[in-house]
């Protein structure tokens, strides 16, 4: 019961901040709301017995990626006028309506799905979601995927360096 309540509170918070993020006009506030979204998300991971993922969620997203976002927003320092959007066009209204529909569906599934989510499942072992269990999965079962991700990061690094470097020779 208390877990359900915690889940509901965090789910609502996460969705609320996410909505706030896309409705803010000032990008810094959007970033702030996005950061705020990560905490209830991390909490939901905790409720799902995944403390490692929860911590990584905060560490990587709030602690690193958003730092870069904020850095870039501060660097660009957009003027107020540029931020003022024009009158909503008809397709924007449609997009807004569809997004609203998604929000309603999201809330509906949260409320309906709350009974089907049972974090304290007797079949879940103590070490499920622990750092060690995750390590075994990554370096054993999903080894090839893990190695491929390193290739992916290599590509990204080469690309970033190539595109951003001033003089290549």
């Amino acid at each position: 019961m208390i877990l359900d309540a915690l889940f509901l509170i965090n789910a609502l918070l996460a969705v609320g901040f996410a909505v706030a993020m896309i409705t803010r006009k000032n990008p810094i506030y959007s970033a702030l709301c996005l950061i705020a979204t990560f905490f209830p998300l991390a909490f939901i991971f905790l409720l799902l017995w995944a403390p490692f993922v929860a911590m990584i969620q905060i560490m990587v997203y709030a602690g690193a990626i958003m730092v870069l976002f904020v850095f870039v927003i501060m660097m660009i320092n957009t003027e107020k006028q540029e931020l003022e959007a024009g009158k909503p066009k008809w397709y924007r209204r449609i997009a807004g309506a569809i997004a609203f529909l998604f929000v309603i569906v999201g809330f509906y599934s949260i409320v309906m799905g709350i009974n089907s989510i049972a974090p304290v499942d007797s079949s879940i072992k103590e070490e499920f979601g622990s750092t060690a269990a995750l390590g075994h999965l990554i370096f054993d079962k999903y080894l090839i995927q893990f190695e491929l991700v390193s290739v992916l990061i290599l590509v990204a690094v080469i690309g970033a360096v190539f595109l951003a470097k001033k003089n290549l020779d």
Binding site: I144, L148, V151, L152, G159, L163
Partner: peptide, 15 residues
């Protein structure tokens, strides 16, 4: 594997 392979390919091509 499919997604990562796809991303390795796509990101290289973007660059």
């Amino acid at each position: 594997t499919f997604l990562i392979g796809l991303e390795i390919m796509s990101i290289s091509i973007y660059i």
